[in-house]
Each structure stands twice: as structure tokens, then as C-alpha cells.
Design a protein around this nucleic acid. Structure first.
Length: 265
DNA sequence: GCGCAGGGGGTCG
DNA sequence: CGACCCCCTGCG
């Protein structure tokens, strides 16, 4: 099916390859990947986005996943006023959107991301799915917390996650014993504290999970790149200064900084 | 080419 | 504040 959206408000590469998700792959003229146990091929066709799914899956899954109900043009216009550098960052990749990912998958993925690089993060996640997910077509679903919670660190050896294995298990145990959905509506500091009870979840991972998994857009993950970017580009500012859409601002700044690494030489 | 440090989207002890 | 699993990168 097709969905109309302006080029400047949604770019597949900028959105799916900006480090917020790890299970979409760029093919010739489309992206292919999986979320919520559904396979999706998606491509740009002029002013439209073409998704190989029916209306039902679009309404129930993908519309929400790509945050199509949010008007990013308005958000960008507001953020642009923040400063000329902010405007540059937005205009560098105006097609970025913050995906609304499955909270459990985001939790697990960003635990894996710590002290790690993107190619290996993707490798570990794909081995996790191949070993413990369910086969769906040519793909494997992201394993449910119940499945992971039933495993031992030794069982996880084939995914080669190293010292993160015990963290993944602790996260799975937590996800089965408590209702993660409460975090959607918790006061933000409470939500942070709740996530940080999980082994292997510190401030940075918690912030990523809140932003990408729970769509708490006031969250502002500060990794080494963002810390550097803030020092150089926004020396006077703190994350809170960006307001309720700080997390979206962060994504433009992060991408801009990574793609223009020479700014920091 | 190939072998070997160095360090990576942090966190824990 | 050093170690951490493993792998990818860059350099000799």
C-alpha cells in the first residue's frame, strides 16, 4: 500500500540507518527489515512511501512505528529557532523520524550497544534472533522475554555478546516479572530509575530505551559523540534547553555530528 | 597480505 | 578508575 508523505519529512536511509534501530537493511532501492514480528519492505516513490503490507498492518503497526501521526514539519520549525547550528543539523538530515520501537526489543538492543560498535551490535542481535526467535518467512522474530528468561549465560554463548549476556538475562527476567508498559506513563525520573535497576542499564542505555522504546521524546541520550557535539556546537546548553522534543533534536545533532566527524578534529 | 595492538553509541565492582 | 567479550579497523 502507499502512504503520502513529503520527501523532506521522511527519508528511509536517514531514519533506518541513523543508529536508532538495528534490524533494517538497505537493498537496491528499498529497505527490508522486521519489527513486531512482521517483515516489511519499504521504498520511496516520489511523494509516496510504498509499503508491502495490507491496510490492517499499516493501521495497526507501521503507521505507529514510523510515527506518521506526528507532524515533524512543525517540530522542525520549532527546533530551528533554537539556534543557527540547530537549523544546520536539521537541514542536514531533515528526513529523520524517531521510530516507536517495541520497548523490550529496544531495551535488549541498547544493552547490547554498550561499549560496542554498530556492525557488531547488528551481528549480535541477528544471532540472538536466529538462535532464539521464531522463523517467519526468511526472517526471525526478536525473541520474547519469556524465551530469553528461560536461558542461561551458557545458552547465549553462540550470539557472542560477551559480558553483556548476563545483562540480557537480567533484562528478560525483569521484563517477565514486571509490566514494562508502566514506564510509558511514569514520571520521567521514576522511569529512568526503574530501568536502571536492570543490570547493564546505566544512564545512557536508559535514555535510549526511553526515547526509542517508549517514545519519551524529552529524553536526550548522551553518548561519546553527543558529549563531544554538545561541547563544540552547544557549549552554553544543556539537554533540558531543547524542551519536550529534546530527543528529536538529539537525533538530528547526533547524525549531523557523526556524518561530519571532521568538525571535532 | 597478515599479525597485532587499539578501542568501540557504557557499566559495574 | 580499570576491566570487560569480541570484533573491526588501521597500521607496521
Amino acid at each position: 500500500m502507499k502512504y503520502k508523505i513529503n520527501q523532506e519529512d521522511f527519508d528511509l536511509e536517514q531514519t533506518l540507518d541513523c543508529g536508532q534501530c538495528f534490524r533494517f537493511v538497505k537493498k537496491e532501492d528499498y529497505f527490508e527489515g522486521m519489527a513486531f514480528s512482521k517483515i516489511l519492505k519499504i521504498k520511496r516513490d516520489g511523494d509516496f512511501i510504498e509499503l508491502d503490507c495490507d491496510e490492517k498492518d499499516f493501521e495497526e503497526i507501521w503507521k505507529n512505528y514510523f510515527d506518521f501521526d506526528t507532524n515533524y514539519a512543525i517540530i522542525k520549525r520549532e527546533l530551528e529557532n533554537f539556534s543557527p547550528i540547530m537549523k544546520d543539523a536539521i537541514n542536514f538530515a531533515p528526513g529523520i523520524r524517531i521510530l516507536k520501537q517495541d520497548p523490550w526489543e529496544a531495551l535488549c538492543s541498547f544493552i547490547i550497544s554498550q561499549n560496542n560498535n554498530i556492525p557488531r551490535i547488528k551481528g549480535i542481535i541477528s544471532r540472538l534472533c536466529e538462535n532464539f526467535g521464531e522463523k517467519i518467512g526468511e526472517f526471525y522474530s526478536f525473541p520474547k522475554p519469556e524465551k530469553i528468561a528461560s536461558l542461561t549465560a551458557q545458552d547465549l554463548e553462540p550470539i557472542k555478546s560477551g559480558f553483556r549476556a548476563k545483562y540480557i538475562l537480567d533484562a528478560a527476567k525483569t521484563a517477565t516479572q514486571t509490566d514494562l508498559n508502566q514506564i510509558y506513563t511514569m514520571p520521567i525520573d521514576e522511569a529512568r530509575a526503574e530501568l536502571m535497576k536492570i543490570k547493564g542499564v546505566g544512564p545512557k542505555v536508559a535514555e535510549c530505551v526511553l526515547l526509542y522504546g517508549f517514545h519519551r521524546t524529552e529524553c536526550f541520550p548522551l553518548d561519546v559523540w553527543m558529549k563531544r557535539a554538545m561541547e563544540v556546537l552547544f557549549p552554553q546548553n544543556k539537554p533540558e534547553d531543547f524542551g519536550l522534543n529534546a530527543g528529536i533534536a538529539q537525533q538530528y545533532i547526533f547524525h549531523y555530528s557523526r556524518m561530519n566527524a571532521n568538525l571535532f578534529d
